[in-house]
Each structure stands twice: as structure tokens, then as C-alpha cells.
């Protein structure tokens, strides 16, 4: 029986495939969260609800220090990356093309193009010699590396926001006796605000998620949450890892929801 209403956009089989894709996409994640509340040691069978694994993870000193380290790095890196990206976006958008502009674009987007493992080993080589030469072993290397690969993620929403901004607003401010600095502070910056916050949040999530580069750059005893989990995975799988994963997942969903509300409100 043909559809009573002809719908040109319907293609046969597409809707079932899409729904199956969504189901398969979420099934593993839902199971992961479910297991984190499971009482049994075996992650395959449900043996009663418990918060035991969350408590265990919470009391684990290694997890505590890794969490603290992850947050320190993500916070520092997202601040540095957002600062650099904001300035760069101001310098590269809404102006006549100039010599070297492509170079700047390529430099900024380079972390998106180069495979992570390549950057990771290059940083290992470079930082290893600095570590030997200076003796400094601190978190600085991780923060620098994270800042660098977070820059393009912070840059994108800021740039998009700038390009969507009416150039005549700043012209109007100048016309109304505002100096260039006053124009920036009173008009450009407030209007750019949501873009900057969005950029910082994306940078934060990206830094928090990193495994490969962190593994190669970190000095001994500098585990972040993802590298700690990676280490645990080499041994027996425990629901403790599920609990940590679930918390990270919740954090990501939270930040993303905020990001969407933030960007949508200003459309």
C-alpha cells in the first residue's frame, strides 16, 4: 500500500538502519554505566545494585591523584589554549588576505591533521632531550603539549563566532567616540564571550580525554585519569574502571549540554 502522503525525502530502509545505528551506538555505553552499579566482580552478570565501585575508586589514592592531575592539566591547557586561540582568531578573521595567512591557518589546524601517535613520539624525542638538559620533570611538558593540541579546538568556535559578528557594530562604536581598546572591551569582547566559553569547554574536554600524547610525554608517576585507566586495562577488568568511565562520561555530557545551550541561545 502506497503512502497516502507522498514523502519525497523518505528512502526505503534508511529509518530502520538509522534506528539500529543509534541503538548500537548507545548499547555499549549504557551497559558500561549499568555494570558500574553491578555488585558482582564479574562484569558479565548483574549481581545486585551497589555503589561499591564508586566508593573504591573514590578511596583509591592513585585515582585521586590522577584525577587531580587530569583536572590541573585540563584547566591550565584550556586557559592557555583559549587565550592563544582568541588572540589568533582576532588576528586572522575579518580582514584582507595577507601573506602568511595560510601558514598561520596550517599551523593552528596542524594538530587536527597530524596523527596523534606521530605528534606523541615527536614530543617524546624533543622533551626527552629537554628533560636531560634541564633536569626539569614537572607537569609543564604535559601542559604545553595539551595546550598545543587544544588550540584548534578552542579556535574553531571563537572564529565562527567572530565571522558571524556584524562588522558594522565595531564601526558604530568607533563612530560613537570609542577608542580601539574601548571598542574591544565594550563591544567585541562581550559579543565574543559565548564563543570563548564554548572554545574553552571544548579544549577542556579534549585535554581530559587524551591518552596517546600524555602517555609519551608524562614522566614517571604522572598518570592522568585516562592513562591510569589504560594501565588498569592491561590487568584484569574491574568495574572500578567502569565507575571512573561513567563519571567521566557524565562530565562530558554535562559540559556538552552546557555548550549546546550556550551556542543555541545566541542564534
Amino acid at each position: 500500500m502506497a503512502d497516502r502522503n507522498f514523502n519525497a525525502t523518505r528512502l526505503p530502509g534508511f529509518t530502520p538502519i538509522a534506528l539500529i545505528v543509534f541503538a548500537l551506538l548507545y548499547l555499549p555505553i549504557v551497559l558500561l554505566v549499568a555494570y558500574s552499579f553491578s555488585g558482582g566482580y564479574s562484569v558479565s552478570l548483574f549481581e545486585g545494585l551497589t555503589l561499591e565501585w564508586y566508593r573504591k575508586a573514590w578511596e583509591n589514592e592513585a585515582v585521586q591523584s590522577a584525577t587531580l592531575r587530569s583536572l590541573t592539566i585540563a584547566l591550565s591547557a584550556s586557559v592557555i589554549a583559549t587565550f592563544c586561540a582568541t588572540l589568533a582568531a582576532l588576528g586572522t578573521t575579518r580582514r584582507k588576505a595577507f601573506r602568511g595567512q595560510t601558514f598561520i591557518y596550517v599551523m593552528i589546524n596542524q594538530p587536527l591533521m597530524v596523527p596523534e601517535i606521530v605528534t606523541a613520539v615527536a614530543l617524546l624525542i624533543f622533551f626527552a632531550s629537554i628533560k636531560v638538559a634541564t633536569g626539569y620533570q614537572g607537569l609543564g611538558y604535559l601542559i604545553a603539549a595539551h595546550s598545543a593540541f587544544c588550540i584548534p579546538f578552542a579556535y574553531l568556535p571563537i572564529r565562527a563566532r567572530l565571522e558571524g559578528m556584524d562588522l558594522s557594530l565595531e564601526t558604530a562604536a568607533a563612530d560613537l567616540y570609542a577608542t580601539p581598546w574601548q571598542t574591544f572591551r565594550r563591544v567585541t569582547l562581550p559579543l565574543l564571550g559565548p564563543g570563548i566559553i564554548a572554545g574553552a569547554m571544548l579544549a577542556f574536554v579534549i585535554s581530559l580525554d587524551d591518552v596517546v600524547i600524555t602517555e609519551f610525554v608524562k614522566s614517571g608517576g604522572q598518570d592522568t585519569l585516562p592513562t591510569y585507566m589504560m594501565g588498569q586495562l592491561r590487568r584484569v577488568m574491574t568495574p572500578e574502571v567502569n565507575a571512573i568511565s561513567s563519571v567521566l562520561l557524565a562530565l562530558t555530557v554535562l559540559l556538552l549540554t552546557a555548550f549546546f545551550l550556550l551556542t543555541r541561545k545566541n542564534d
Partner: peptide, 12 residues
């Protein structure tokens, strides 16, 4: 002072 074609009023 100028009255702009797009008005250029500050939305914030």
C-alpha cells in the same frame, strides 16, 4: 555620527 544601513545596534 552615522546611522548605519543595518542599524548596527549593540545586541548586548
Amino acid at each position: 555620527n552615522t546611522v548605519f544601513q543595518s542599524y548596527a545596534l549593540f545586541p548586548h
